[in-house]
Design a protein around this nucleic acid. Structure first.
Length: 140
DNA sequence: GCCAACGTTGGC
DNA sequence: GCCAACGTTGGC
């Protein structure tokens, strides 16, 4: 099992919209960055990810699960771009803000802290547990 | 709303 | 293949 982090501006695609999709999930489309795409290609069914609201709230608000592995982005007119489908698993009891991640020295190597511009990021198992602990949320 | 950081493009 | 110019992202 691998762990990831998906970023979205709440105005564009929010956690609430993701939850509303239920078990069916939704394509994580619109990624036009090779590094982010390569991360999605590496994802397996059942992998978990954090759902992060960028720019305005800057906080991790929920946990999602990969429910379809990488396939062509249906909204792209270019076969280079692929995406996975994700579905909401559970919200965070307490959202974990970027500031909280920056303050916790155990998370100093987290991609979110060091490379704020990458929209789909890997998260280590260690980081996963720490963030869930900060958010008082079941990491399973 | 500003601007730093980063990625991409294209001229040479 | 280098690098300047440009566009976008996202924290503040």
């Amino acid at each position: 099992m691998n762990y990831w982090l998906f970023k979205s501006e709440a105005e564009v695609w929010s956690w609430d919209q993701q939850v509303a999709k239920g078990e069916a999930g939704e394509e994580w489309d619109g990624v036009r960055n090779y590094q982010a795409r390569n991360n999605m290609r590496a994802m397996k069914l059942g992998d978990r990810g954090f759902f992060y609201h960028s720019r305005k709230e800057t906080e991790i608000v929920g946990i999602v699960e990969v429910c379809a592995e990488a396939h062509p982005d249906s909204k792209a007119n270019d076969p280079r771009w692929e995406c996975v489908d994700i579905k909401a698993v559970r919200p965070f009891t307490k959202p974990v803000t970027l500031a909280m991640c920056k303050e916790d020295h155990r998370l100093k190597d987290m991609v979110l802290v060091n490379n704020s511009r990458l929209s789909v990021q890997p998260v280590t198992e260690e980081e996963w547990k720490i963030v869930c602990e900060l958010g008082e949320t079941d990491p399973s």
